[in-house]
Simulated scan of single mutants.
Amino acid sequence: MVDLYSWLKNAVETELLYLDNSYLKSAVASLLDYACDKPGRCYLVLDKTIFHPKTGGQASDTGWVKGEGFKFRVEKALMVKNAVAHYSRLIEGEVPVKGSKVALELDWEPRYKAMRLHTAGHILDYAVMKAYGRHVNTLEAQHAPPNAYIEYDARNVSEEVVEEILREATRIVEEARRVNIFWVSWQELSSRIYNAPNLQRLPRTSRYRIVEIEGVNAIPCTGTHVSNTKEVGRIKILRLEETIRGLKLYYDVD
């Protein structure tokens, strides 16, 4: 069993390529280190990655790490401190030496679905706010199939409220609004965000990545997103569940 925290607590920070370009399907990186918990099952640490780890309500990407004479199947990516550990199964060849150049390839279809779902989640945040006529915080979220959901600090849901949420979300998708990604400092944050939930839980850091759906909301977020709401497709509200804390909304896109 690999103690990931002890191993990676002083590791070099992984460059997260998806933060600036969610559409990257492949890239070249260097293998910095690895640790195997059983033959052919290894955690790979690279200098850069296109694989989004399981974090921020988004599931881990999967795909391939390949090189001269070897091929790994990436089954999950985990964020440990500032490094990403790619848990991988050796399919061909032998574990390469540290410093080897590797080719990264995403499983694009599930990644693109995650991008559409995550952007749909931001749209739903706004639609819920409009339907309730007040600021509504999110309590928990999972932007991943087969059970994507957002839990809101809201109650007293009615059929009319659900219809208003769906109507507003559909309008935003059909208006084909641009989705912008930009970075701001702590000092700039308050003037660049709007209609953003959960700000009281936002940690203090030197800079923030903002995902803005033009005219809808601008939210601190490290997830992957589409560049236009039209790409989201049709948002479907599958079911609603009342919880101890509020309301859990299950949704999908097609």
Rank of each mutant, 00 (worst) to 15 (best):
residue 114 A to I: 07
residue 189 L to E: 05
residue 83 A to Q: 11
residue 230 K to F: 11
residue 67 G to T: 02
residue 192 R to N: 08
residue 97 V to D: 15
residue 168 E to V: 15
residue 151 E to P: 08
residue 131 A to K: 13
residue 233 G to V: 09
residue 58 Q to S: 02
residue 136 V to E: 07
residue 164 E to S: 13
residue 99 G to K: 11
residue 136 V to C: 03
residue 229 T to W: 10
residue 210 I to K: 03
residue 136 V to M: 03
residue 205 T to I: 13
residue 220 P to Y: 02
residue 121 G to P: 07
residue 118 H to S: 00
residue 144 A to P: 09
residue 31 L to I: 01
residue 11 A to H: 12
residue 202 L to I: 02
residue 1 M to E: 10
residue 166 L to G: 03
residue 65 V to D: 10
residue 93 G to F: 05
residue 52 H to I: 03
residue 166 L to A: 13
residue 42 C to Q: 09
residue 179 V to Y: 01
residue 175 E to F: 01
residue 174 E to Y: 03
residue 47 D to P: 04
residue 88 S to H: 00
residue 68 E to D: 14
residue 11 A to N: 07
residue 235 I to L: 03
residue 163 E to L: 13
residue 101 K to H: 07
residue 63 G to I: 06
residue 173 V to L: 09
residue 164 E to G: 08
residue 160 E to S: 07
residue 47 D to S: 00
residue 121 G to Q: 01
residue 6 S to D: 15
residue 210 I to G: 01
residue 219 I to P: 00
residue 214 E to P: 02
residue 140 E to T: 12
residue 147 N to H: 14
residue 70 F to G: 00
residue 98 K to G: 04
residue 169 A to T: 06
residue 137 N to M: 04
residue 28 V to Q: 10
residue 26 S to T: 14
residue 213 I to K: 00
residue 177 R to Q: 09
residue 80 V to I: 15
residue 17 L to A: 10
residue 151 E to N: 12
residue 246 G to W: 09
residue 130 K to G: 02
residue 222 T to P: 02
residue 195 N to T: 06
residue 230 K to G: 10
residue 173 V to W: 00
residue 147 N to Y: 14
residue 143 H to Y: 09
residue 26 S to G: 06
residue 12 V to W: 06
